[in-house]
Simulated scan of single mutants.
Amino acid sequence: MKAEVLRIQLPPWPGGEGEASQAEVRCGWREPGGGWHDGGARMLDAVARDFQPKRLEVCLHPADAPIAAFALPPLSGRRLHAAVQGAIEPCALQPLDALVTGFGPRGADGSVPAAWTGRAVMNGWMGVLRRHGLPVRELRLPVAFLPNPGQGWTACLIDGWIAVRTGPDQGFMQWLPEGVDPTAGLVAHAGGEAVLPAVQWAGNDDALARWSGEGWNWSLQADDLADGHAGAGLALARPVAGWAVLAIAVWLTGLNVYAARLATQGQALKRQMAARVKAVFPEVPVVVNPLQQTRQQLEARAAGAPQGPAASDYAGLSRAAVSLLAQTPPGQVQGVHYSAGELRVQWREGAAPNAQAKQALQAQAREQGLAVADDAGVLRVTAAPASEPGKDAQ
Rank of each mutant, 00 (worst) to 15 (best):
T166G: 02
H189A: 10
K358A: 09
A92R: 03
G308W: 09
A232Q: 08
G118A: 15
A222C: 12
V378N: 02
A305C: 02
S219W: 15
A68I: 03
G107A: 11
A376Y: 11
L255Y: 11
Q356K: 11
S312N: 10
G390T: 12
P306A: 14
V100A: 06
V333L: 10
L134N: 02
L252Y: 03
V345Y: 07
S312E: 15
W347C: 09
Q265N: 13
A68T: 08
R49W: 08
R165F: 01
V128T: 05
F70H: 13
P239G: 11
V164G: 04
I248R: 10
E4I: 09
V84T: 07
R271F: 07
A71G: 11
G15D: 08
V143N: 03
G77V: 04
A68R: 13
D313A: 15
Q368G: 11
D223A: 15
A114P: 00
P73K: 00
G104H: 01
L75A: 13
G110H: 06
G171V: 00
A311V: 02
A365P: 00
P53G: 01
G77I: 04
P168L: 02
G39V: 01
A274R: 06
V372N: 10
G127P: 08
G390N: 15
A230G: 15
L93Y: 05
R165I: 00
P62V: 02
V112Q: 05
Q85N: 12
P14Q: 09
A383M: 15
V378G: 01
G28V: 01
R49M: 05
V288E: 15
Q296N: 15
V136E: 04
R348K: 13
V284P: 01
I67Q: 12
V280T: 15
W153I: 00
M173F: 02
Y258P: 00
D50Y: 10
M173S: 10
A108R: 10
L93P: 03
A355H: 06
A155D: 04
T253C: 13
C91P: 00
G304K: 05
L325A: 05
V381W: 01
Q265S: 12
Q346K: 02
R271C: 03
A68M: 10
R30M: 12
P74F: 06
Q327H: 12
P290C: 05
P149I: 08
H61E: 00
P32K: 04
G192S: 05
A352Q: 14
A260R: 14
D224G: 07
G34H: 09
G86D: 14
Q174E: 14
W161D: 01
W218A: 01
T117I: 04
P105Q: 05
R295D: 11
L298G: 04
R130L: 10
A48T: 03
P113A: 06
F51R: 03
A68V: 06
W153G: 00
F70A: 11
